[in-house]
């Protein structure tokens, strides 16, 4: 089976800094794989190991994602090849634009049986792209999937819901968003890292795709919360009065 794992490239959150005016400074943040998408890649690797076929990683984003180290990082996780669409016109896309861009990029792929997405992106976490992509492609789409097996050409997917586990059989091709606990993404060793540099990675521009989607949201500003000094209010004991005073203080903050 041919699996496509969709991956979002986000700024490495460990390198983000807050400027004095509370805006976020991305200058030192290198592009990295959105954490939850590593589960989608790992599940793709596992499905291909169990069922044969190949795993392609697909990513779309601005031109900064066309980064040599990032491509090696993605390919060291077990995928066979990478299709990347990197273009400044695709900067800061919303979920709908992303789903449209992924659909247009998928048109460049000969065939696929299963498209895997992560639970949500590490930066926006809207959890929309998988659902919208399935809708745009007109194929079955489900999310919250915590187990996938393939039987007789169909996918058996387990969805862990609040009070029950739902087991669904769906035909392929399909889009599935996996939960972050579906697997533990493997650590890439030096062998995989060295091999990643030799795997095929195709990079396209927006003009290579049949893609046009207007932004549906406008971001006015993104600010870090203002920090306040510690108040050093100490309430002694566990009496009802002390607990009431504690709750009253917490309520003031909230």
């Amino acid at each position: 089976m041919n699996v496509v794992a969709c991956v979002k490239v986000v700024p490495d959150d460990q390198d983000l800094t807050v400027s004095p005016d509370y805006t976020l400074d991305f200058d030192r943040a290198r592009p990295s794989i959105s954490t939850y998408d590593l589960n989608a890649v790992e599940e793709g690797v596992r499905l291909v190991e169990d069922n044969g076929g190949s795993l392609k990683v697909l990513t779309v984003g601005d031109s900064s994602i066309d980064d040599s180290k990032l491509k090696k990082n993605i390919l060291s996780r077990g995928a066979d090849d990478l299709l990347m669409v990197a273009d400044e016109d695709m900067k800061a896309m919303d979920a709908h634009q992303t789903a449209c861009a992924l659909k247009a990029a998928l048109a460049k792929i000969d065939s696929y049986d299963l498209i895997l997405c992560g639970d949500g992106s590490a930066d926006l976490y809207a959890q929309q792209v998988g659902a919208q992509l399935g809708q745009l492609l007109g194929i079955p789409v489900i999310n919250c999937v915590s187990k996938i097996t393939v039987e007789n050409g169909a996918v058996i997917a387990e969805r862990t819901l609040e009070h029950e586990v739902e087991i669904l059989e769906i035909p392929m091709p399909a889009v599935i968003s996996v939960t972050s606990d579906i697997n533990l993404p493997r650590i890439a060793g030096m062998k995989q890292i060295l091999a990643a540099g030799k795997k095929p990675a195709v990079v396209l521009r927006a003009t290579d795709l049949e893609y046009a989607a207007l932004a549906t949201i406008e971001v006015l500003e993104t600010l870090a919360p203002k920090e306040t000094d510690r108040k050093h209010i100490i309430i002694e004991g566990d009496s009802d009065e002390a607990i009431a005073a504690f709750i009253a203080n917490v309520a003031k903050v909230i």
Partner: peptide, 18 residues
């Protein structure tokens, strides 16, 4: 090198995890 950076990032992930 990029490979060395990735090696140590993966090692750091493994140490943090295990």
């Amino acid at each position: 090198s990029e490979e060395q950076e990735l090696l140590f990032e993966n090692l750091a992930d493994l140490v943090e995890r295990e």
